[in-house]
Design a protein around this nucleic acid. Structure first.
Length: 540
RNA sequence: GCCCCGGUAGCUCAGCUGGAUAGAGCAACGGAUUUCUAAUCCGUAGGUCACAGGUUCGAAUCCUGUCCGGGGUACCA
């Protein structure tokens, strides 16, 4: 980051001297050989304004007085790029910084800012499926990213304990109970039929006996509690814990929902039609109006969601992140609109929508629905795969791409999984460091300038980009980018390792410098993996 | 109907706030193994970036249209 600032300052200095008013340039990492480490398009952009050829401008910039020659030199190349050649010394010195700051390298200081990340938020109507798993892991990593970047993060789980779904669940549970004790009761239409309900029904028989009537609250409360306990233990097994659980029922009890309706009515943003209450979204740039309260008197999900979000905004977070499945794609804009109508701040709300997961099992795609019982649970996945692999698989694809999770492949070819590639690099280093201590006793003088091989510089260059990477990810909130970066680091390390001997009794100074490079690499791998919640084993 | 996502090597996908010769893994083929852990490395081969226009000095990337695939959605959430 400091480096980029120096390069920007240099360009700005040139512009100042030439009295040119201009901002729209960028500096990007350059992996092409012979064109330096970083390049800027500034001359190409300036060409039009100055009405001169880009290469002419680039050359002029390259000739501009550079007060930081020990850090970089500048050249121009066709069609008009300005190239920065970073000196080896700059990179070599970064190693010192990485090793000194260790687990804090690239980490932001506390910002004194708070963030709320809402995810999973699955209603307790059944076990978590692999679809929830994707969201759970995405949310957890996004939370980690924010924490790393200085936010005080609250992980929140919101669920509906009051709506129609829970009523249907209770009815389904009663039907299972009744069937178990010989009463002739059918599972309601659109009811839940999963096996987990049989087990719960059995528990109810054991605990409460056979005389319960269908309207007994046990069927709702006990079932909810059972399922919720199961959900929490599932999440726990992949290393996820929440700070706050919020129930929809709260907003009925405290009047918040009623309040939303009243405000909308006052502002003439709602009306009654066909026995339902409608949200006048058509007057707010929407194609059609949406229902807030059904003709049955039950609110749709929109209404409590608006009340809930208003509550989150009122709690004063500096950043609110909502992670939803693709089924919310049409609905969250209504919630945001609702907030605006209530005069709530909304520009600090980030919504991450992720596409669904399909599971391939035995070459066939399993279509999942909680209601029909043909889903694969997160627990089942967890039984067969390690938490590390599950975590990695779920973020290998961008959130808005469909994820085909091939179960057989994940199991059978688990040794080819990229997560091992990362972990292996770490294990290799760990082993090497142990070996080093055994074979070479006592430290030599540190001389980082001995690290001038191409593979060494390339590795350090990558390591030095870690803080930039984390900064970038704090805005994009894409954990996958960390994974991709770490794969690059591991790759560069394996390459270095393959081509150069670290322990060399003939040259202890070089050995020591290389050992330090290994240590720095390990720090970066560990820091990155810890944000992903993936372990960094010492041995494999 | 409306909305979202995708179409890049044989396969799975990166790259998409426009930049130099489009990358990686797997699969294929050839090499490195008395190893500082080969779960690795080196090399070869593999491409009309779905298609057609447009904007630009410059397009896989931005805009428009078309085709193909996946998904969501209606007083269920």
């Amino acid at each position: 980051m400091k480096l980029k600032q120096l390069m920007n300052n240099f360009l700005q200095d040139f512009l100042n001297k030439e009295k040119i008013e201009f901002r729209d340039w960028n500096i990007s990492v350059n992996n092409k050989e012979g064109y330096g480490d970083y390049s800027s398009n500034i001359a190409l952009k300036l060409a039009k304004i100055l009405k001169k050829s880009p290469i002419e401008i680039a050359k002029k910039i390259a000739d501009h007085q550079n007060t930081t020659k020990n850090i970089f030199t500048i050249s121009a190349s066709l069609p008009g790029f300005v190239n920065f050649h970073i000196s080896d010394i700059y990179y070599q010195e970064i190693l010192d910084q990485i090793i000194n700051e260790a687990e804090n390298f690239g980490k932001k200081k506390k910002l004194n800012k708070s963030a709320n990340v809402e995810f999973v938020s699955s209603n307790p109507t059944g076990p978590l499926t692999v679809g929830h798993g994707r969201q759970a892991i995405l949310g957890d990593m996004v939370s980690n990213i924010l924490t790393w970047n200085g936010y005080d993060v609250t992980r929140e789980y919101y669920y509906n304990d009051a709506g129609k779904q829970m009523r249907v669940l209770a009815e389904s549970c009663y039907a299972k109970y009744a069937q178990l004790i010989g009463r002739d009761v059918e599972i309601p239409e659109n009811g839940y039929v999963g096996k987990y309900l049989d087990e719960i029904a059995k528990k109810i028989v054991d605990r409460y006996g056979k005389d319960l009537k269908d309207n007994n609250s046990v069927f709702r409360d006990f079932t909810e509690k059972e399922i919720f306990t199961n959900i929490e233990s599932t999440l726990d097994s992949i290393g996820i814990k929440f700070d706050v659980f919020t129930k929809e029922g709260t907003f009925y009890k405290n009047g918040a929902i009623k309040n939303v309706l009243e405000i909308l009515k006052e502002k003439d943003l709602s009306y009654e039609k066909d026995g339902a209450v409608w949200f006048k979204t058509s007057s707010l740039d929407k194609d059609e109006d949406k229902v807030l309260v059904k003709s049955t008197g039950e609110p749709t999900y929109r209404l409590p969601d608006i009340a809930y979000h208003a509550d989150k905004v009122d709690r004063g977070f500096d950043l609110i992140v909502d992670i939803f499945g693709a089924d919310h794609i049409d609905t969250y804009p209504d919630v945001i609109l609702g907030l605006k109508c209530l005069d709530k701040k909304t520009d600090h709300i980030k919504v991450i929508i992720h596409q669904f997961v399909t599971i391939k099992k035995g070459g066939e795609i399993v279509k999942m629905s909680t209601r029909k019982a043909n889903f694969i649970t997160l627990d089942e996945l967890n039984d067969e795969l390690s938490s590390d692999i599950i975590r990695y698989f779920f973020i290998m694809r961008g959130a808005n791409s469909h994820l085909d999770f091939d179960l057989d492949l994940a199991k059978d070819e688990s040794e080819k999984n990229p997560v091992y590639y990362l972990q292996y690099a770490n294990a290799r280093i760990s082993n090497l460091l142990k070996r080093y201590d055994k074979e070479i006793s006592g430290d030599e003088e540190i001389d980082y300038t001995l690290l001038k091989e191409k593979d060494e510089i390339a590795l350090i260059k990558l390591l030095s980009e870690f803080p930039n990477k984390m900064e970038e990810v704090s805005h994009s909130l894409e954990p996958r980018k960390i994974a991709t970066y770490l794969e690059d680091v591991a790759g560069a390390y394996h390459k270095f390792y393959g081509n150069h001997k670290v322990i060399n009794l003939e040259d202890l100074n070089l050995s020591f410098a290389r050992k330090k490079l290994c240590e720095a690499t390990k720090i970066i791998l560990k820091n990155g993996l810890s944000i992903l919640g993936i372990s960094a084993p010492e041995r494999m």
